[in-house]
Design a protein around this nucleic acid. Sequence first.
DNA 1: ATCCAGGGGTCAC
DNA 2: GTGACCCATGGA
Length: 305
Amino acid sequence: VKARKNTIRIPKPQLFNFSETLWFLDRNLDDCMHAVENGKARRLFKTPTGNVLVDVSEVSTDLIAEGVNAPISEPDEIRRFIIEWFDLERDIRPFYKLLKSDPDLAPLAKRYRGFRIVGLPDLYECLVWCVMGQQINLGFAYRLKRRFVELYGEHLDHEGKRYYIFPDPRVVKDLSVEELRKIQLPTRKAEYITGISRLFANGEISKEMLLSLKSEEGMIAELMKIRGIGEWTANYTLMKTLGGMNGIPYGDSGVNNALLKFKGIPKKNNRVQVDKVFGQFRGWKTYLVFYLWRSLREKEGGMVI
DNA sequence: ATCCAGGGGTCAC
DNA sequence: GTGACCCATGGA
């Protein structure tokens, strides 16, 4: 069957469970940058010919992306985005082999079979989001992000709902601290975010530039030069945006909780022990982090919220 | 009330 | 390189 012009088909790789992807996108956290409904993930894309709302759903062998309000005008870019978003071009069988070799972690392979990283392909969106979310509870972080996006991003109304494009750095760079404080962004974070926006607007940083560095250590070092970006954010960005496979967000409370649960490792001053566990997962550290995070949202007997 | 949350910057030593 | 302190807000 030949696909219609308004659809993109992407073959599903082995060890891919789209339900896990949708679950991750919809974990009750009110993310304003996508919607999940009726087995579809929906996101608004900016294209030269206008903003296109795209639905991603699955059939037996493929993922299918469809334009909702208009034809998909940039199929190559949107295909590329979806592949990065859901990490569809990676053979993760070696990761499962490593998991199964560790008795404490082996249950993760069975429990979350087919769970793949859900990325954040847009670098600017990732960095701003990281700054917003630093050291506050996730519910509040998502509310901050929503206010920010609603105020400064473009939107499209469709069937009674509003969908957003993440704000443009050229718009954000000139906002005053006082303005950003109105959405309850602390002074310091407002400074970080306008500073990061300036770098993007001036072309002083880009995803392409970071990717051209090739080495993960180099990308982390480059990111950490930026004010507001420390080790945690640099590693998170490496994992979510840059496709790095050896990111460890040291000090992350979720990772610490999971390692306490599975390995009995204390939550503080644990860097050496954390490195020891991750040392067995060279090339797949990022995946281990995601599986540890995944494990936090479930208890025996069912989901926790 | 107290502690923690998917941290980071700054400063003293 | 390490440790103490500050920033700020909401949830448990």
